[in-house]
Design a protein around this nucleic acid. Sequence first.
DNA 1: CGAATAATTGACACGTCATCTCATGTACTG
DNA 2: CAGTACATGAGATGACGTGTCAATTATTCG
Lengths: 160, 160
Amino acid sequence: MVTINTSPPRENEIDVTEYSPAEAIAAMSRQGYRMTSPRRAIITAALRQERPFTAEQLVTETSSGDGESGRSTVYRTLEILASLGVLSRILDASGRPVYVAGAPVHRHHLICSGCGAAVPFNACPIEDLAATLARENDFEVHGHLLEIFGTCGGCKSGAA
Amino acid sequence: MVTINTSPPRENEIDVTEYSPAEAIAAMSRQGYRMTSPRRAIITAALRQERPFTAEQLVTETSSGDGESGRSTVYRTLEILASLGVLSRILDASGRPVYVAGAPVHRHHLICSGCGAAVPFNACPIEDLAATLARENDFEVHGHLLEIFGTCGGCKSGAA
DNA sequence: CGAATAATTGACACGTCATCTCATGTACTG
DNA sequence: CAGTACATGAGATGACGTGTCAATTATTCG
């Protein structure tokens, strides 16, 4: 397995924990999930993506070919992979759920509206703020949602 | 326009700009929108909500009674109200779009998973972070999404 | 006031995304 | 290699949202 950093995120250090298909398959088996050919195909397709992708995109990609899979299977498998930390489920600029490769360490993303690239970053100023707000409002904070949107260098200069 | 200062004055002062139905109606007229009975009903219903609500909820609420309105009209009117700052469109913990009363000033929310209450707060630590990240990653930041989820005082103690 | 006109409405069709069901298929265990 | 619990996927269902367009209506103007 590539880079697993169990220690808390430091400054702006970006460490992306990514699984290879084989590792992801192993992780699933280890958890008692059976390894089927649709699952293999979905894992492979998911980890091949270079940008955030929607479940529906994977449905299309795996609807034919080796390890052909149906919609239900794709949705189910993505959910499992997210629960295992092989993928993370985040929201795009429109609030639609998309998946990205990577463990569910505390991380947010810079998301390009142009090309959809998602640059992860660890720095999170929320913890402190959340604690303060929790105290002030008698709230018990469970989590937060933070994504930053914009245009990446390439899209700024390059084609529309 | 009425500016309400939610009582206890404190550090992160929150000033919620809320419109009364009459004010919202006036604002629409001023912009050249015609005032119809469905629109009046939608405005009234929207401003009566005490928690974030979905468009579909309002569709149900206004599908009968005085100023009965259809789905299209509700969606259209909510969009207009949001563009006028009478409502804001935010995302709930599941990433689903919901509306809350209030101007589109830069504001985020503490959202209770129990009762759905949305407590707005102004403090936003993102600006600085965004600027830094933008510089470091050659990104041009256009906006961000930040909501904090948890359980409010009432839901912590009270009923499930 | 009573047209004239342009905005508005809403029933309905459509599209997308997602979930559920359940008969059939199959990976794993012993 | 047989038994069984798990997994699959076609299809139904449904939530949510958008687009269309003939009929309606607020507003303007003579």
